[in-house]
Design a protein around this nucleic acid. Structure first.
Length: 794
DNA sequence: GTGTCGCGCGCC
DNA sequence: AAATGGCGCGCGACAC
């Protein structure tokens, strides 16, 4: 039986009416109920709406169920604060008067009949204008990324929502909107069919200590209201608490209605909170966070005072977080193509290596062990003979459970003491790469119908506003130096047309540049502003910092680069030909990679961690561990490390004052730290645990958090420009531009894929937007490369 | 068998 | 007194 919209009695909640009211009032909440979490396989079971009340206290709710067995639907109004207060009072006193008072306030549920289910495609199609043609209406979701994914792939419509390639009508409309507003192309917002908002992201901006808590928990915390969810009911029913329970679908509708209502309450509350935290004061950060957003003041929800400028946190919300949410959804649904045939080889290779190492361990010890078992390894290494090897525990930390740690950082120095140590560490590393990455990726890729892995990027996963990645895998910790795994992340497989390429672009030392910017360290600023940078290759000293001293008149000067051949210089003062050559500390950008030769220590391990660790106040013992600074007897060279650290801080004299200033600022602000763009980290609770640590966290937050701001802005700008090209291109070219996609973000690096024919344009866009994402006191440098696999692009 | 925790590893 | 920070995942060990 075919059912059309006309056959259904919606009462006052027909899609057309809903859209009408939503547009008039400016806000609407929606929430999809789905059969699962995977938008590629699961379906939408229904969609719920809540339009907040207008003048007459007449909120509008609608629940459109798409489940075939749907019979009927309750519309249960949510408990008002008065109602709740009355109920709680009655529960406390049990007095009849209080009961009457409660009943007088209690709202009654209404019942709607829908049989059979509503036609999904038609309903969604009728709702489309709300999402695609309501440029002044704020459409709120509780987790927008999730809902967008389902609307893109599981709407049931021929043309999904948020689909840039097929959705040419939206593109054309934007073209018109542009002309109207006379804006520069780079500033247009391609997703402006409606104004998308996310209560969870607003909440996160208000309080980053909120992590992955759901709506339920936040409603409890903020409103002292205990929501019941559908899952909750299903679970309780399974446990046998309910002898008889209403039909699943009824429950689903009921709780969908509750969800949208509380999503609104949360959203409204959090937007006001954002406004309270940073009330309408324009900021001048030197970044473009604000500049492109002046026009967004019209997006302010109506309950705000329109005469005031938008506050800083609210700007971040509309200008970065919401756009990023759309980008992340596209990344997730695009996924990354994985070469599992290559990975099978890697797995086998690692297996062989592991077996060999295990054999060697058995030969050394005389018995075999499981290197993955921390207690076992700890006993073998540290127990006195004959049980174990009785190695020194002098520089080995103990774990929380009192056992001696066996982490690679803790026992790394013991490889001098006994050959088995290195074997164990080696085996564990191989095992991690094999199990955690190679095997896992192989499974996922060969099971995926499209051969791609769709991992999640979580916007609320960290307290410093970095992204995190998970489910099914963490894209951000794929092994780099083994050079095996990243080869499998590719643009095409063997036998496929080689028409796509991977593009990788990473910022050069962005955290140090941010540190230079924030601290104002003149030395740092100088080297980062050097055009061309360090000319030293392969470890020889950097020419830029050669210092010549005239042996006759003691004049000191630095020889110009690319000058006359070595030795033929004359002293500029006295014309003497005799000079001695000194090496000034090379303070080039890449210094931290070269600190080794700079200060004359073995290059390798020190190079990686020096700047990073010292910026965040690493102390000498730990520095020895990381840099592998030990003497012949296996003792850490603490004094030497102290010297290096002192030298480092002398080379960058503004860093320590930067640390002090951070501390002062924390005390002044009530233990709130800020990034360049004004994101906040509230550390007052942390402070009571350990003040020193808290200050360190604040330092790191300022630096890493600001770097994140910059990369997020860059992503937004790249995305915008790509969609702008999509919009302008000829029909044939649109197909190509639509295939330019973000795939991965790793804190200072982004990976995209794009058709090979667009190589030059795409490279140019990425480079330019990355470098132009912020104006610091030092230039931003980004380097875009392309290739077949992730291994090739960095 | 299932769930939680600590540990150890990968990344920035 | 001494002190780098931020993530996610798989395994072993242990409790139920």
């Amino acid at each position: 039986m075919a059912l059309t919209l006309e056959d259904i009695d919606f009462g006052d909640v027909s899609p057309a009416h809903l859209i009408d009211v939503a547009r008039t009032r400016g806000h609407v909440v929606f929430d999809l109920e789905t059969s699962g979490l995977d938008c590629h396989h699961d379906r939408i079971e229904g969609i719920a709406f809540y339009v907040p009340e207008g003048k007459d206290n007449d909120a509008l709710r609608a629940w459109y169920p798409f489940v075939p067995k749907t019979m009927q639907m309750f519309v249960q109004p949510d408990e008002t604060p008065e109602e709740q207060a009355a109920r709680l009072k009655h529960e406390r006193t049990k007095s009849p008067d209080d009961y009457d008072a409660y009943m007088a306030l209690k709202q009654v549920a209404t019942l709607h009949d829908f049989r059979p289910a509503m036609p999904q495609a038609e309903t969604m199609e009728a709702l489309r204008p709300l999402f695609e043609d309501s440029p002044r209406t704020v459409v709120v979701a509780a987790n927008a990324k999730f809902d967008i994914g389902f609307m893109r792939y599981a709407s049931g419509c021929e043309r999904g929502f948020w689909d840039w390639e097929k959705d040419l009508s939206v593109v054309d409309k934007l073209e018109a909107w542009w002309k109207l507003t006379d804006e520069k192309p780079a500033d247009y917002k391609p997703w402006e069919g409606c104004i998308l908002a996310d209560s969870m992201l607003a909440d996160f901006l208000c309080d980053e200590n909120f992590h992955a808590y759901g709506l339920k928990r936040r409603v409890r915390e903020l409103f002292d209201h205990e929501m019941t969810t559908y899952l909750d009911v299903a679970k309780r029913r399974k446990q046998g608490y309910f002898g008889f329970m209403a039909d699943d679908v009824q429950a689903l509708g009921h709780y969908a209605m509750e969800d949208v209502y509380w999503t609104w309450r949360l959203y409204e509350n959090r937007m006001c909170r954002l406004d309270d935290l940073t009330p309408g004061e324009p900021i001048t950060t030197g970044t473009d966070v604000v500049t492109a957003l002046g026009k967004l003041s019209r997006l302010r929800p109506s309950h705000f005072d329109p005469s005031r400028a938008m506050g800083n946190l609210e700007r971040l919300f509309w200008g970065i977080d919401m756009p990023l949410c759309v980008i992340l959804e596209e990344m997730e649904s695009t996924g990354v193509l994985i070469d599992h045939r290559w990975l099978r080889k890697v797995t086998a290779q690692l297996e062989e290596k592991k077996e060999k190492i295990l054999d060697e361990i058995e030969q050394i010890l005389g018995y075999t062990i499981n290197p993955n078992s921390a207690p076992q390894v700890s006993t073998i290494l540290f127990a006195p003979p004959p049980t174990g090897l009785g190695l020194s525990t002098k520089y080995v930390a103990q774990t929380g459970t009192g056992m001696f740690s066996t982490g690679s950082k803790e026992i790394g120095h013991l490889k001098r003491a006994h050959p088995v140590v290195e074997k164990i560490l080696d085996w564990r590393s191989c095992d991690t790469v094999q199990g955690n990455f190679s095997i896992k990726l192989t499974h996922l890729a060969s099971e995926a119908p499209d051969g791609r892995i769709h991992s999640g990027f979580n916007q609320t996963g960290t307290k410093i506003y970095r992204l995190s990645s998970s489910n099914p895998i963490n894209m951000q910790n794929q092994p780099r130096d083994k050079n095996l795994i990243r080869k499998a992340f590719c643009a095409y497989l063997e036998g496929m047309p080689e028409d796509m390429l991977l593009f990788g672009c990473d910022y050069s030392q962005i955290e140090l540049r941010v540190a230079a910017h924030l601290s104002g360290d003149l030395g740092m600023i100088e080297v980062y502003n050097m055009v061309g940078g360090c000319k030293a290759a392969g470890g020889e000293p950097c020419e830029r910092f050669k210092l010549w001293v005239c042996e006759d008149c003691d004049h000191k000067w630095t020889p110009a680069l690319f000058d006359v051949p070595n030795g033929s210089h004359k002293c500029p003062k006295c014309d003497s030909n005799e000079h001695t050559e000194h090496q000034k500390r090379c303070r080039h950008v890449d210094l931290h990679q070269r600190t080794a030769e700079d200060v004359g220590v073995p290059r390798n391990p020190l190079a990686k961690n020096a700047n990073f660790g010292l910026l965040y106040r690493m102390a000498s013992p730990r520095f020895c561990q990381y840099a592998d600074l030990y003497d012949e007897k296996g003792e850490p060279r603490i004094d030497y490390a102290d010297e290096l650290i002192k030298g480092w801080f002398a080379a960058y004299p503004a860093i320590e004052p930067f640390h002090w200033k951070t501390e002062e600022a924390l005390k002044k602000s009530g233990w709130v730290a800020y990034t360049i763009a004004g994101r906040q980290r509230r550390l007052s609770a942390e402070r009571w645990k350990n003040e020193y640590r808290t200050i360190t966290q604040a330092i790191q937050f300022q630096v890493s958090g600001s770097a994140q701001d910059i990369l997020k802005i860059a992503m937004k700008r790249i995305f915008k420009e790509i969609k702008w090209h999509l919009q302008r291109a000829s029909r044939a070219m649109r197909k190509l531009w639509a295939k330019v996609r973000f795939l991965i973000q790793v804190h200072d690096e982004v990976i995209l894929e794009a058709p090979a024919v667009l190589k030059d344009e795409v490279m140019e866009i990425i480079n330019r937007q990355m470098q132009g994402a912020a104006k610091l006191r030092v230039p931003l440098v980004a380097d875009c490369k392309f290739g077949r696999s992730w291994d090739h692009v960095h």
